[in-house]
């Protein structure tokens, strides 16, 4: 029975391939980890100067961090779900 489940369940390796493909699609930006913190620094500048673009900049920082997270999702999770 366990052999059947193992055969039917997608292996981590196959997920691994999919993840890489999706990562390229979603994170179609320069993978510069440093840029995350530059964006947050610009957000802080906006807070201190009381600029209207501060909240959009914070959202851009969050989205870029998500893109970097997706880019670094290369190792398979050792579960078959």
């Amino acid at each position: 029975m366990s052999d059947v489940i193992a055969t039917l369940s997608p292996s981590p390796t196959r997920y691994h391939g999919k993840c890489l493909f999706r990562a390229r699609g979603f994170a179609n930006v320069a993978p510069v980890m440093f840029l995350i913190f530059v964006l947050w620094a610009v957000t802080y500048v906006g807070i201190f100067l009381h600029r209207k673009w501060t909240i959009p900049m914070a959202i851009v920082s969050i989205l870029y961090t998500l893109a970097m997270l997706r880019f670094h999702m290369t190792d398979p999770i050792p579960l078959s779900f």
Binding site: M33, I36, F37, W40, A58, S61, I62, T65, M68, L69, H72
Partner: peptide
């Protein structure tokens, strides 16, 4: 890298 993502979350 994932630690840096979490640090970014803390900063946010």
């Amino acid at each position: 890298p994932l630690c840096l993502v979490q640090r970014s979350g803390m900063i946010g």
